[in-house]
Each structure stands twice: as structure tokens, then as C-alpha cells.
């Protein structure tokens, strides 16, 4: 899939004209409201997200993928890769409450991030790996069963 297919046709040009129009409207809004949007700061986060993904996160994920492929034979890879992916996303979503960032912003408001998130995130990750173990067990049973 490394070759990107060149677009063409009416659908593309309609999408391009309408889409670029919407983008210009959005960019205009960013600059008209520069006091609130801080265009330089905005660009740092907006483009930074792109670069962080392409240069750091995606290569790291690829590296983990290579390690899993080297360590595990084919039947076992799928469940472990699924578990790793789900765990990474759950930890990413739980990152702010795990670190109590909201509690720092809303000092004295006990209703913000009210749980023990170490236990909460560990519980969700535990559910994920319990499902992975069940999946691995199913594969193991199928492999030992005579055809």
C-alpha cells in the first residue's frame, strides 16, 4: 500500500473546492480571533501533533510491532497486538486523570477526577488482558484439538 493513488474526477474537484473554502473560513476565524486563538501557539500544537505522530509515535509503534513479530509465532501475535493496542489507548485516555491534572486546575473541587485512577486504569487494563487471555486460550484449545 506504499503507493498513494492519485485522485481525479468530478468528486475530487467538488470536494477540493468546497473543502478548501471551509478551510479558508476556519483559518480566517483563527486569525480574526487571534487574541483568543494565539495563532503561533495554535500552529505549534496543530503542526506539532502531525510531527509527533509521524516522527515519534508511528516509528515507536512500528518498533513494538517488529519486536512482537520476532518474539511470537503467528497464531499468538494477533491477541497480544490487540492487547497492546487497547492498553496503549486506555493509558493515553487515562493519562490526565492518572496524573490528576484536572485537580490542579480545579483546586478544592472534589468532583473533578474523583476516583483513584491508578486502580481504575489498572482495572480496565486488567479487563483487556483477561479478554486477551481468553482469546489465547481459545487459540490453544483449537490447536490441540484433532482436525
Amino acid at each position: 500500500m506504499s503507493r498513494d493513488e492519485a485522485p481525479s474526477g468530478v468528486a475530487f474537484w467538488i470536494g477540493a473546492v468546497v473543502g478548501i473554502g471551509i478551510m479558508v473560513f476556519g483559518l480566517r476565524g483563527i486569525f480574526i480571533n487571534a487574541g483568543a486563538t494565539q495563532p503561533v501557539e495554535f500552529a505549534k500544537w496543530f503542526i506539532g501533533a502531525d510531527l509527533l505522530h509521524d516522527l515519534v509515535i508511528a516509528p515507536l509503534v512500528a518498533l513494538v510491532g517488529v519486536v512482537v513479530v520476532r518474539l511470537l509465532s503467528r497464531p499468538w501475535r494477533g491477541p497480544v497486538q490487540a492487547g497492546l493496542m487497547a492498553t496503549a489507548i486506555v493509558v493515553a485516555v487515562g493519562w490526565a486523570p492518572l496524573h490528576g491534572y484536572g485537580r490542579v486546575t480545579a483546586i478544592g473541587n472534589g468532583t473533578v477526577q474523583p476516583l483513584d485512577y491508578s486502580t481504575a486504569v489498572a482495572t480496565v487494563v486488567g479487563v483487556i488482558w483477561a479478554l486477551v487471555l481468553v482469546w489465547l486460550a481459545v487459540i490453544a484449545v483449537r490447536r490441540t484439538r484433532p482436525v
Binding site: G9, G15, A16, G19, I22, G26, F46
Partner: peptide, 18 residues
């Protein structure tokens, strides 16, 4: 405002990948 920018890019992408 970033939502408009993103949706505009999504419309271009939908046209390109339709």
C-alpha cells in the same frame, strides 16, 4: 475554529478518496 479547518480538510479527503 480548528474544527472548521479539520472538516474542510476532511471534505477534500472524502472527494479525493471517494
Amino acid at each position: 475554529w480548528a474544527a472548521w479547518l479539520t472538516m474542510g480538510a476532511l471534505v477534500v479527503h472524502i472527494g479525493a478518496k471517494f
